[in-house]
Design a protein around this nucleic acid. Structure first.
Lengths: 366, 366
DNA sequence: AACCGCGATTAAACCGGTTTGAATGCAACG
DNA sequence: CGTTGCATTCAAACCGGTTTAATCGCGGTT
C-alpha cells in the first residue's frame, strides 16, 4: 500500500478548489456581472466579451455553483417527490420506478434535480412536504396516489410550492397530468364478455384512492353497458395476500364468478395462485385479468392478461409541466399514449359451469 | 397566540415571504450570530438567550434556509443516488425501492436529503456524478451495482464527492456497506443436495457485476464442498426473457439438470414458466430456486423457494455511513442482519429420472 | 484602583452567484 | 460642437445563513 495521503472520502489533492465566477471574470478581464450575463444568455454583451468569457470558463472548467445560484435566485432548481407506500408494496409497485424514470427524462433538458423522500404514513408525508418548503429544498412537487377529496394539493400550495397532480384531468382544479387508464378495465370486461362470461367480479385495491375507485367504476359501467347483472366487488389493498384472500372470498360464494378483474397484477397473480390451490384451472375454470403489466406478467402460469399504461410518459409530461409552472411559463400541451389491453393466457372462454370448490386446508402462503 | 407576522398556515401562494435569521434575531433581541449558535448547538450562549431565541423561532415558524446554509457551509446536506437500469428491469427490481426506503430511514435523523438520478447508460451515469459534484448538488453518493474493477469509486472521489460503496466488504478500499449475500446461494445448493439433487445448474445474471459473480462463485464452491461434479452455468441478464431462454438451454442438454439456481426471482419465475411450457412439473421434474424474495415469490405457481436479504437495512447502514463520512465523523459500526433462505414449493426431492423434453413450438412470450 | 481572565455577545467578513442602477464610450443627430 | 441615445460594462447591494475576531461585562486578584 502506498502512503495513502487522503483518508477515504476526503477531498483529493488534485481537486484544487473550484474556480468561481470571480476567477473567470478576472481571467477574461471583465466584471462578474458580465460573466453572469453570459452564462444566463442575457442581452447586452458584446460578441468579443462573450467570447472571452466563454473561453475563460472553458479554460478554468468553471460551471456556476448551484448552491450560490439557488440562494440569489431564490429558487432551488429542484423538484420533489414524496413516495408513500407500504413496505410490502414498495418493491413490487411498478409505478414509482417508471414514473421516476420518466420524470428524469422530462427534467434532463432543464437542469433540474429530483429530490426524493420515501415515507410510511400520512404524518411523515405531510412533514416531508413542509420540509421541502420550509428548507427550500424544492421549488415544486408532484402529487401522486391522489385520494378522494385529497387535501394535499391545497396544502402544498399554501406552503408556497408549485404542484402538479398526477391524476386524470378534472380531479383537481390545478394542473393535472394523467388519463383515464380505467378505459383498460372497460376493454377487459368487454373482452371477457365476448368470451362468454356472465359473472365477472372485481377485486378492488385500497379504498379511497382515485385510481382505485376509477377502476371499480369502469368495471361497473362496463357491466351495465353490456346489460350484465350487477357484479360482486371485494375490497382488497393491492398486496398479494389481500388478492388471495379476496379471491377465496369470491370463490366461496354460492355462485362464484367465472372471471375476475383485479386492481393490479400482484393481486391477480396471487388470485391465480389461490384458484390453483383450490384445484381450479386458469383460464378453463376461471379467467383472470390484472392491471399494470409488470414484467413478470408474461411469466405467470398461465401468463397474465392485463392492462398496460405508459407510466414513463406520464412522468415525463408531469416533469415538463412542473418545470413550466415553476418558471412561470405556459405549460406545454401534453399528449399521452393510450392505455393498452394485453391478452395473454389467463383469460379464455367459459368452459365449465360454475362448480363448488373449497379452500385447501391450513396451508398459508408467505 | 402572539402577533407573529407570519403564523404558519396563513401563507398566500405569492406573498408569504418567510422569516429569516434576521427576523428571529430582532424578535429575540440578539444578534444573528447568537441565533446561529443556538440552532447549531454551539457553546457560548447563555440559557436565557437560548431560550429567547428558541421562543422567537417558534413564534415566527422559522427554520434555517437550506439554500443559504448550503452556501455558507459549503455543504449541501444532500446525498446522491444514481440509478442505472434497463427500462425493463427498472420496475421489477426490488433492490432500489427497498434501498431507497432504507436510505431515508438512515437520513431522517440527520436532516439530509436524497437527490436521485435515473439513467440508462454508462455515459449518462458518469455525467450524473459529474453534475452532482460540479453543481454541488450532493456532498456524497452511494455507489451500487458494483462491477468488477469498477472505476467509479476512484472517479467520484476525484470529483471531490464522498462515497460509500454498496458491496461486500473488501470489494473496494474505501468504505463499503454490504455483506456476502451469496451465503444464501450456498444454503440453496445444500438444500437441493439434501433433497437428492446431483445435477444443479446455475443461471447467472448480467456478467461483470460483483454480485452476479459472487453468486456464481458461491454456487460453484458449494458444489465442490459437496463433492458434486462441476455444474453447468448459463449467463443471462436478470430479465424474464433471458431467464426463460437460459432455462430452455439447460433443459435442451443431453443430461438436463434436475435443479436450477437462478440469479434472481424474475429469471426463476420465468424459468418455471418455461419448464411448465415444456410439460415439466415443478418441483417434481425440476426444482427451482430464486434470489431476492420479491413479494410475488409466494404467489408463483408453485411458490418460489428463494433467498432474502434485508436490503432496507443496507440502505439505512449505507446512509448512516455516508453522513458520517461527509461530516468527518467516525463511521458507525454496522450490523447487518443475515441472509435468509426461504423454502417454498418450487423445490422438492428428485422424483423422476431426467427425461428429454423439448420446447413447445412457435409461441413466444411477451 | 488597576488588572486579569473568561464567558457571553456581536459586528463584519464571507460563501458565489444575480441583479440593479449608474457610468462609460461611441456614433448619430441637430 | 454640444447633445442625445444606445449598447456595454461594472461596482455594489443583495440573497440568508456561518464563522472569525473583537468587544463587553463582571467577579476576583494583587
Amino acid at each position: 500500500m502506498s502512503t495513502a495521503p487522503t483518508p477515504p472520502g476526503s477531498l483529493e489533492p488534485g481537486a484544487a478548489k473550484r474556480a468561481t465566477i470571480g476567477d473567470v471574470a478576472a481571467r477574461a478581464g471583465v466584471s462578474k456581472s458580465t460573466v453572469s450575463f453570459v452564462v444566463n444568455d442575457r442581452p447586452g454583451v458584446s460578441a468579443t466579451a462573450r467570447d472571452r468569457v466563454l473561453r475563460a470558463a472553458e479554460a478554468l472548467g468553471w460551471q456556476p455553483n448551484a448552491r450560490a445560484r439557488a440562494l440569489s435566485r431564490n429558487r432551488t432548481q429542484a423538484v420533489g417527490l414524496v413516495i408513500r407506500r407500504d413496505p410490502e408494496l414498495l418493491s413490487t409497485d411498478p409505478f414509482f420506478p417508471q414514473f421516476m424514470a420518466g420524470v428524469e427524462i422530462g427534467l434532463a433538458a432543464h437542469d433540474y434535480s429530483l429530490v426524493l423522500q420515501v415515507v410510511g404514513d400520512e404524518q411523515s408525508e405531510r412533514a416531508a412536504y413542509q420540509r421541502f418548503a420550509r428548507e427550500s429544498r424544492a421549488d415544486g412537487v408532484f402529487l401522486t396516489d391522489l385520494r378522494l377529496h385529497d387535501p394535499r394539493p391545497q396544502e402544498v400550495r399554501e406552503l408556497g410550492l408549485s404542484a402538479v397532480v398526477v391524476a386524470p384531468e378534472g380531479t383537481d382544479p390545478g394542473p393535472t397530468i394523467g388519463m383515464n387508464d380505467d378505459a383498460g378495465v372497460r376493454r377487459a370486461v368487454h373482452h371477457l364478455h365476448s368470451l362468454g362470461h356472465q359473472h365477472i367480479a372485481h377485486v378492488m385495491g385500497t379504498a379511497g384512492y382515485v385510481h382505485t375507485e376509477a377502476r371499480r367504476r369502469a368495471w361497473q359501467n362496463a357491466l351495465e353497458e353490456l346489460g350484465l347483472p350487477t357484479g360482486t366487488v371485494v375490497t382488497a389493498d393491492f398486496t398479494g395476500a389481500s388478492g388471495a384472500r379476496a379471491t377465496h372470498e369470491l370463490l366461496d360464494l354460492p355462485h362464484p364468478p367465472t372471471a375476475i378483474v383485479y386492481g393490479n397484477d400482484l393481486m391477480a397473480i396471487a388470485g391465480i395462485s389461490a384458484a390453483t390451490d383450490r384445484g381450479l384451472r386458469v383460464p378453463d375454470d376461471l379467467s383472470v385479468v390484472g392491471f399494470d403489466d409488470i414484467p413478470l406478467a408474461p411469466y405467470a402460469v398461465p401468463s397474465l392478461t392485463t392492462v398496460r399504461q405508459n407510466v414513463v410518459a406520464w412522468g415525463t409530461a408531469a416533469a415538463r409541466a412542473l418545470v413550466a409552472l415553476v418558471e412561470g411559463n405556459e405549460p406545454p400541451t401534453i399528449d399521452l399514449p393510450p392505455v393498452e389491453f394485453i391478452v395473454r393466457g389467463s383469460t379464455g372462454p367459459t368452459k365449465n359451469p360454475p362448480r363448488r370448490t373449497s379452500r385447501p386446508g391450513g396451508s398459508r402462503k408467505g
